[in-house]
Design a protein around this nucleic acid. Structure first.
Length: 440
DNA sequence: TCGGGCTTGGA
DNA sequence: CCAAGCCCG
């Protein structure tokens, strides 16, 4: 067999379109081996994401087969398996998308060392963000610490060109492609289904709603948000594609895509983001109360808007961004519990849970992150009345309160005793003194 | 260096 | 109007 071969290691870029590592390798090499390594170290982290991942892999394999190739699946350590496969197929090069988490950083470091040892050419590509982390820097530092200035620079930056899906993928002869294990069970009955085709359908279906985004995105009961986050998390969609198709760079929706890039460049500069307070000198001392934590996690705090959010999370593996703010704010600022504990619960359930966004946003709410106003607190009742004015969101997710009409559903402790006793719904959790002003 | 500016709030 | 310092240009 003659000609040159490359291994393309897929990670969380599970798509064919606008995939720089794949497109470039297919153009530059005679044969390309698309590889995904199932790392047992990650398998138990989140049943929801593991199931979604397997759906993405099945879809990617089908797409690659349609182009004459396949997705090679291995189990084990991604670095060891990549090196082993490269040896088996006589590859000269390894390509993958650059990533920012601690896990990804360690994987990259070990890949560099092993590729050097085995005389393999290793190349990292863009593609997980619109603008690569580190590409934009402020005058006095290595990364942006405040969103506003970052957004201005990001909007004015020249973005790379989108790349087409390859037209053909040629595998070397006789590569064992490996079996995809049976689809594992998730935790959430109403989770969306992974895969690039599903992602593109959702994007196509949602784009006509874009012009209402600014008016509707904060309404908890409505469907005004794109719900693309799980697909962006696994790279079923290129964020550049999403941003380009959404048009105006200054629009509120594209601004949200920019937040994702913002937290990736923060994480690249501060890989401890999931464990350590980002803000120097931030107050980072919290109570520990196992009962309060489990009450919050299971959606039985007795504060309806909080419980509604947590139950949506458990049912769908996703929750509205406004509900993320309210539930996270309640855990940290009202209950006084550690943002890391809330982060872990989100990580277990969220289909879109990734280190950069999940950690960055939790730290923002907790006041330890990239916020100019770290002493911000959310009043859950005010939030509920503003963003769920009729109470429809609460009644949908907290059926014990379905009989309570209107916005009274947000404060069941104020209902007449006779009514309250008919509801199978707890009083609010005991809270540290002083009790919050909204609870009376 | 210094002034403008800072996702999501509250009184 | 105050957010609370401090990031950014």
């Amino acid at each position: 067999m003659t000609g040159r071969t490359a291994v393309v290691l897929f990670t969380r870029d599970l798509r064919m379109h606008d995939h720089p590592a794949l497109a470039t390798s297919c153009a530059a090499f005679d044969r390309v081996v698309p590889l995904y390594v199932l790392d047992p170290a990650l398998a138990g982290l989140s049943p929801n994401r593991t199931r979604f991942l397997h759906q993405c892999l099945a879809a990617l394999r089908a797409e690659l087969r349609g182009l004459g190739g396949d997705l090679v699946l291995r189990h084990g350590d991604p670095v060891a398996e990549t090196i082993r496969l490269a040896g088996e197929v006589g590859a000269e090069g390894v390509a993958l998308s650059a990533d920012v988490s601690r896990y990804a950083e360690r994987r990259a470091r070990r890949l560099r060392a092993e590729c050097e040892r085995h005389r393999l050419h290793l190349r990292f590509f863009p593609g997980l963000t619109v603008v690569e982390p580190g590409e934009l820097t402020p005058g006095g530092g290595d990364h942006y610490r405040v969103f506003g200035p970052y957004h201005r620079a990001w909007s004015g930056q020249r973005w790379r060109d989108e790349l087409a899906a390859p037209s053909r993928v040629v595998l070397p002869d006789r590569v064992p492609v490996g079996r995809l294990p049976a689809l594992p069970a998730g935790d959430s009955p109403d989770a969306v289904v992974g895969g690039e085709a599903a992602a593109r359908r959702r994007l196509d279906g949602w784009l006509p709603n874009l012009r209402h985004y600014d008016d509707l995105h904060d309404d908890l009961a409505g469907g005004g948000t794109s719900r693309l986050s799980p697909y962006l998390r696994f790279g079923c969609l290129s964020p550049l594609t999403v941003a380009n198709r959404a048009g105006d760079r200054g629009s509120p929706f594209v601004r949200q895509v920019c937040w994702r890039d913002f937290y990736h460049q923060v994480t690249a500069a501060f890989p401890d983001i999931s464990r350590k307070a980002y803000r120097r000198g931030a107050a980072d001392h919290w109570r520990y109360d196992a009962d309060a934590l489990s009450g919050w996690a299971e959606g039985r705090t007795g504060v309806p808007i909080v419980d509604a959010g947590m139950r949506q999370l458990r049912a769908q593996g996703w929750l509205h961004n406004r509900a993320r703010l309210v539930t996270a704010g309640y855990l940290t600022k009202t209950l006084g519990l550690d943002w890391r504990d809330g982060l872990a619960v989100y990580f277990r359930w969220l289909l879109d849970g990734d280190v950069a966004n999940n950690s960055g946003n939790w730290q923002w709410v907790a006041g330890t992150g990239n916020d100019a106003k770290p002493y911000r607190g959310f009043n859950p009742i005010r939030q509920a009345e503003r963003y769920d004015p009729d109470g429809g969101y609460v009644r949908r997710w907290v059926p014990e309160l379905a009989a309570v009409a209107g916005k009274a559903v947000h404060q069941p402790w104020r209902l007449p005793d006779g009514v309250r006793r008919t509801l199978d719904y707890p009083p609010p959790l005991e809270m540290p003194e002083p009790a919050p002003v909204w609870l009376r």
